[in-house]
């Protein structure tokens, strides 16, 4: 199994691969961000790889290194029982990666989490909002240059109109969500 997946990516997307290594059975390819969606689509659909499960999308912040971020996709094949880690380098001044939301449904929320925590945007994402933190929060707390004890108490950030009757009418009464009981 070793290196088979790396060779597959190198064969089909040789220009995109920056680096590859395999250690203790963990195959990793580091690629350019431009065609990452194509690479992952190929890995998902090809009969030789069948990567039909996206285990995680996460990010690493290498502060003081250029390029600063690496977005990490961990792909797994349930049929073939093999795993490949795809890493995408992202520079700080242009924190942007193409989305893979259309390939895996679960990627939508994982990308929202990466944006929430690291501030890396995903181009083409349909609904890039905060998923774990609250919308009043400023900054991205898992970046290495975020002060580690800096908290932003939500009670103090909330506006007074938050719990008003007007807001209730605006968000709940006028726009009942799907499945809610109609008055």
């Amino acid at each position: 199994m070793a290196k088979k997946l790396i060779d597959f990516v190198k064969k089909h997307f040789g220009d995109e691969v920056l680096d590859a290594h395999s250690r203790l059975g963990n195959d990793t390819v580091v690629v350019e961000r431009g065609r990452v969606a194509d690479i992952i689509a190929r890995l998902r659909d090809d009969d030789a790889t069948q990567m039909n499960m996206l285990r995680a999308i996460t990010c690493v912040d290498y502060l003081h290194r250029e390029p600063r971020f690496e977005v990490v996709y961990i792909l797994y094949s349930i049929a073939k029982k093999h795993m490949l880690t795809v890493r995408v380098v992202v520079p700080e001044d242009d924190c942007n990666v193409p989305t893979i939301e259309h390939l895996y449904g679960c990627a939508a929320w994982m990308e929202r989490e990466v944006w929430d925590m690291y501030g890396v945007t995903f181009e083409g994402h349909s609904d890039l909002r905060r998923v774990l933190l609250y919308e009043e929060f400023e900054g991205h707390p898992l970046r290495k240059d975020y002060a580690k004890q800096a908290s932003q108490p939500r009670l103090e950030l909330l506006g007074k109109e938050r719990d008003s009757v007007e807001e209730f009418n605006r968000y709940v009464k006028d726009k009942p969500s799907e499945g809610s009981r109609q008055a």
Binding site: L133, P141, Y146, K148, Q149, A150, S151, Q152, L155
Partner: peptide, 13 residues
């Protein structure tokens, strides 16, 4: 827990 997420004691609330 002393980070961005956690309330440092509920007596602050």
């Amino acid at each position: 827990y002393d980070n961005y997420a956690t309330v440092q004691g509920i007596d602050k609330i």
